[in-house]
Computed example of a mutant assay.
Amino acid sequence: MPIVLASLALLAAVAALAISVMVLRTLSGSRRSTGEEALPEDVQGLRQEVAALRIEARDALRHLAVVRYDAFGDMGGHLSWSMALLDNGGNGVVLTSIHGRSEARTYAKTVTDWTCAQQLSPEESEAIDNAHA
């Protein structure tokens, strides 16, 4: 559940960044007709902040995908899952939780350039592929 909340918070941050970019594009369009010197100081400050956010966003985990499945034949409900959390370069992590009858185990594998040095399960590969799409 904390991962779901973290994912939602990340999505909200990405949405806020998208709104900021839309505002910046609107301001850029009006700047062409009025000239940059006509912009108030606070707008120029906002521009600098948006530029800094763009630089930070390059490393943000923007490609997310979850694959739910039944890890064992005698269990139902798709309680096991694999989640890929990757940036634009395909760097990040794939998390897997295997739910059994009496326990659950969680695994994390590092992903670099959309590939992993460790062997991936079919579900982990699917999560990475879905995040890349």
Score class of each variant (00 low, 15 high):
P122K: 14
H63P: 00
L46E: 15
T112F: 09
E56S: 01
S20T: 03
P40W: 09
E56V: 01
L5W: 12
Y107P: 01
A104P: 05
M1C: 11
E37L: 04
R31I: 08
A6Y: 04
D59Q: 06
N130G: 02
S97Y: 06
D87H: 02
L46R: 15
S125L: 07
A117Q: 04
D87M: 07
R58L: 00
A16Q: 14
P40Q: 09
A65N: 05
G90K: 14
G89K: 02
G35D: 07
T110I: 07
A60Y: 07
Q44C: 12
L85Q: 09
E103Q: 14
V66Q: 00
T115K: 11
P122A: 10
G76Q: 03
G29C: 04
S33R: 15
M1K: 15
V23I: 08
V14S: 05
A57D: 00
G29F: 08
G76W: 01
D59W: 07
S80M: 04
S121V: 14
T115Y: 07
A9T: 13
V4W: 08
G92H: 14
A71Q: 09
S125C: 06
A108G: 08
A12D: 10
R31V: 12
A13H: 03
A15M: 09
E123M: 06
E36A: 10
E37Q: 15
L27K: 13
G29I: 05
A57K: 01
E103P: 04
L120I: 15
A104N: 14
R25S: 00
E41K: 10
L11T: 05
E56N: 01
G90A: 10
T26W: 03
I3H: 05
T110P: 03
T26P: 00
S82F: 08
E36Y: 04
R47N: 12
E41P: 07
A18K: 09
A108R: 13
G73R: 13
E41G: 10
L53M: 10
R32Q: 07
G92C: 11
L86G: 09
I55L: 02
G73T: 10
V14H: 04
S121Q: 13
W81Y: 08
I3T: 06
A18W: 07
Y107S: 11
L46I: 11
T26L: 08
G45E: 12
I19F: 14
L53G: 02
A131K: 02
Q48H: 15
D74E: 14
I128W: 08
G45F: 08
M22T: 05
M22K: 11
D74C: 09
S121H: 14
W81C: 01
M1I: 06
L10Y: 12
K109Y: 12
G92K: 11
V14W: 03
I55A: 02
V93C: 13
G90S: 12
L85R: 05
L95P: 01
G73S: 12
L61W: 13
E126W: 07
A18P: 01
S7M: 06
V93Y: 11
T26F: 14
L24N: 03
V111L: 11
I128R: 07
E49F: 11
T26M: 09
L120W: 11
D70E: 12
H78F: 00
P2T: 08
A52D: 06
E123G: 03
Q48W: 11
